[in-house]
Design a protein around this nucleic acid. Structure first.
Ligand code: FES
Ligand code: FES
Lengths: 143, 143
DNA sequence: TCTTAAATATGATTTTTATCATATTTTACT
DNA sequence: AGTAAAATATGATAAAAATCATATTTAAGA
């Protein structure tokens, strides 16, 4: 459903959501290890997310990555779109085109409503929401 | 959501469902062109599906691919599994492991019910069903 | 039986995605 | 100012997915 890169991005950002703050920055290697993602790979992803202002970073000693409280309001979908691009989610199941209810492909009716609902949830749910679930023990951050 | 190979496979098999029969076999090139898929690529896919008895084929002059009436009862999910393997659909969104409600990842609750429903539909819906929709003009076979 | 038309088997090439590596820049601290 | 610790930029390599190519097998029809 998601690319590897997106999975990793979400895990990393959630890790930051739970463990970081402006006063508590985290280095790449201390993110990569607990979420079980190759260090160099996640570095590239985090750098891109930082450039897009989805996460924050500072260079140099005592530097690292972190989320501001504003950034805790980021929606899950924004991360997906930042990494994989917008199209991926609205594309038709069978063609290269965009899904289009006026010209539905053969699988359209089987999935459209559910896909839409998932879409809405991903657009609505913030990192803060997910952090809360994790802290309450309702979900986990998998390896 | 699906790999390229799976998309192509579904389109090709649906094309056969609509246009072929034991008396009306169709050659690779006459499948590849209308569904807009590279000829050699779809050839490989069709050969694999034939080996798994999801479609039928005969060699030689007047040969080609077709579906028996039994094969019209194939479920969409069977095609997906034949091409991409079983795991793809039951894997967790964030990890490499299988999705597991007892140890839900952070996105699990956002998608599980809907994903399940889609799953059920794909397991239930046959090629015959989809053919009927197409013939009634309720859906199309996209390029 | 010979020729031809089709799928089949096999493998090579290209493209994309994932992973690894390193030189450069910035910043904190001495 | 100088040193070290961090991200950043850039690019190289590896693995996987997609695409292309071709020799072999099978069956129909002359
Ligand atoms: S048109 Fe194909 S999924 Fe909507
Ligand atoms: S555990 Fe991750 S999707 Fe169910």
């Amino acid at each position: 459903m998601f690319s590897n890169s997106t999975k990793y991005a979400i895990k990393a950002v959630l890790y930051l959501a739970v463990h970081s703050s402006e006063e508590q920055k985290i280095m790449i290697k201390d993110i990569a290890e607990p979420i079980n993602v190759p260090k160099h790979y996640i570095a590239k992803i985090l750098q891109a997310l930082s450039k897009k202002d989805i996460i924050s970073s500072t260079k140099g000693p005592k530097g690292g990555f972190y989320l501001t409280s504003d950034q805790l309001q980021t929606k899950v979908m924004q991360i997906i779109e930042a990494v994989d691009g917008e199209e991926r989610f609205n594309s038709c199941l069978l063609s290269l085109e965009k899904c289009n209810s006026d010209n539905p492909c053969s699988l359209h009716h089987l999935v459209f409503d559910e896909k839409n609902k998932i879409n809405e949830r991903l657009k609505m749910t913030t990192l803060k929401d997910l952090r809360q679930h994790i802290m309450r023990g309702e979900s986990i951050l998998p390896l």
